[in-house]
Design a protein around this nucleic acid. Structure first.
Lengths: 212, 212
DNA sequence: CGGTCTCTTGATTGTTGTCAAAGGCGGTGG
DNA sequence: CCACCGCCTTTGACAACAATCAAGAGACCG
């Protein structure tokens, strides 16, 4: 993948692209590798070119608080660069990944004045603000029951694909709690399941009423 | 205050300003009035010109979850406009306020392509992402003790100005819990207070170790 | 000095996480 | 084809944390 194929940069001149080329490098990460840790200094601007990256925070007891998963092409952690703060979360490759790293201190702020670049940045930042706003809603407003009800209604496919433990970590609860809630929902006839990877909604309205 | 005095717009041409003038209006709010509710459709882009605005969410039990306070000049709730989603939080005037309301559907997206305008938007969005990131850290990572310790170290002045109930609502805990934690900190000789509006730090390091 | 608001303290509850054990399910190798 | 093993899920008992409810103490103001 070339720089000019990155939407963010596709309106830049050849000269600009060469400038960016000079201050950037591509790095490969294996699944499980950490791209940056929460608390690290943001020296590079990171752009995910290939693979899937998980973003999470770590609480005082060492538990991971899942925030988001990124797919290409995405800016990752740009907030830290823009605001000149330490990375507020950890980015981990969950598949083989290719990341473009741009030396942010040398990154000409004038690029940000390019109308198309800044438009893309606005889109990226806006998307992230929305993500964080959703996280806040999910974690601070919804009860555990409500979180699960929402997940069932809006992402039923996850239950067919993932194990309980994985689902639980997506919504930051324990597998035990998830199991108990699913059992409760089954008792109330909101859902039904013959085997573990076959969950069906019986009463969508009741589920929705838990989080609306 | 004229449009051209708003940093966001000060690089726009006279013609552009007139265009915006046509699709905007100023509205005054009294202290306590609601500027928009969580769940409202974002018809207008809101810019705070005068006064102080509190942003909060409401949980299922009717409690307010405090998010942020805005002072002039600030875009408020622009995320909802940009992402075309319902307002994720409620904005309430906590003093007399003056708000510029721009009809977003008529707001020429080309303004966003103006380098200086988009630069300001990036700054605003970046700031908000940081605010939300901080909220997530404060509410999901820090324990109650840690929140209070941080508040004491970083904003001691609040304790001299506000009542316990007000401080408690800033960090989304109950006054009772705040009182208990302050008592505990006093017992441990982390802080000391002769009267209620006179709090002094005795052991900054111990306080910091609670949240670092 | 009385009254009201605020703060403190205790007892209790609700919610979810933790720890532990048992049950079920599927896959593998004999 | 079956027995066994390992992982996942379920269930129970318990702990931790902060909210709630209630009562009493204290501070501030007219």
């Amino acid at each position: 993948m070339y720089l000019k194929d990155i939407t963010l940069f596709n309106s830049l001149s050849k000269k600009n692209l060469e400038e960016i080329e000079k201050i950037s490098s591509k790095e490969d990460f294996k699944a499980g590798n950490i791209i940056f840790y929460e608390g690290d200094k943001p020296i590079f601007l990171h752009i995910l070119l290939e693979g899937v990256v998980k973003l999470y925070k770590t609480d005082s007891k060492g538990r991971q608080i899942y925030i988001h998963q990124f797919t290409p092409v995405s800016l990752i952690g740009e907030l830290a660069n823009f605001e000149n703060i330490l990375f507020p979360a950890t980015a981990e490759a969950i598949t083989k990944c290719k990341i473009l790293k741009i030396e942010y201190s040398k990154f000409d702020n004038n690029f940000l004045r390019n109308p198309n670049v800044s438009f893309e940045i606005i889109k990226s930042l806006s998307k992230k603000t929305k993500i964080l706003s959703n996280i806040i809603h999910q974690e601070m407003i919804l009860s555990t029951d409500a979180k699960i009800a929402k997940l069932i209604v809006e992402h039923l496919e996850l239950f067919k694909q993932l194990k309980n433990g994985q689902i639980a970590s997506l919504v930051n609860i324990t597998p035990e709690t998830l199991s108990r809630i699913l059992t409760k929902f089954k008792k109330k006839r909101y859902i039904e399941s013959t085997n573990s990877h076959n969950l069906a909604i019986l009463d969508k309205k009741s589920l929705e009423s838990l989080y609306r």
